[in-house]
């Protein structure tokens, strides 16, 4: 039998818990705005966070569009400049048919898959930066 109170069992009022806080924490917070609040307040720093995300996504989008623009939309020009290609037979079919009828679809799907992966990584990077920065005082 232990004396009441020491093991937390009823029998006497348990000692009140007091949260110990550093008096400096509040002051430190005032000076350390989170990245999220910088963005919300549309400060210069917030703008920098945003435009870096936008730039990364736009650069990725441009790269994808350029790839498709050259490799797919470039085909008519290629057929015009190298007329011999039209005569080439692949699997018993003219090359333009193989490219436009079949090969183009897996290509587009592959590009799209790469895009989704990279776009999600850009967003994860952004989220990491915004959530990590100054949201907690350093320990």
């Amino acid at each position: 039998m232990t004396p009441p109170g020491t093991d937390g069992s009823p029998g006497g009022p348990p000692p009140r818990r007091v949260r110990v806080t550093s008096p400096r924490t509040g002051a430190a917070r005032l000076h350390r705005l989170t990245a999220a609040s910088e963005i919300d307040a549309q400060t210069r720093l917030g703008e920098i966070y945003m435009s870096s995300l936008l730039r990364a996504q736009l650069r990725l989008a441009s790269a994808v569009l350029l790839t498709v623009g050259v490799l797919v939309a470039g085909l008519p020009l290629l057929f015009r400049l190298v007329p011999g290609l039209v005569q080439v037979q692949v699997l018993g079919m003219p090359l333009p048919w193989v490219l436009l009828g079949f090969a183009v679809y897996p290509f587009l799907l592959g590009v799209a898959w790469l895009y989704v992966r990279t776009a999600e990584r850009n967003e994860r990077d952004f989220a990491d930066v915004v959530e990590r920065s100054g949201s907690r005082p350093p320990r």
């Binding site: 990725l60 989008a61 994808v64 569009l65 498709v68 797919v72 003219p94 333009p96 048919w97 436009l100 009828g101 183009v104 679809y105 587009l108 590009v111 799209a112 895009y115 989704v116 776009a119």
Partner: peptide
């Protein structure tokens, strides 16, 4: 003939452009 294959190709590639520029 062949030129008309651009219709289905374009209708599919349109989704790629949409994905890249607009979807999310």
């Amino acid at each position: 003939g062949t030129d008309m294959l651009w219709y289905p190709v374009g209708w599919t590639a349109g989704y790629l452009v949409l994905l890249v520029l607009v979807a999310a």
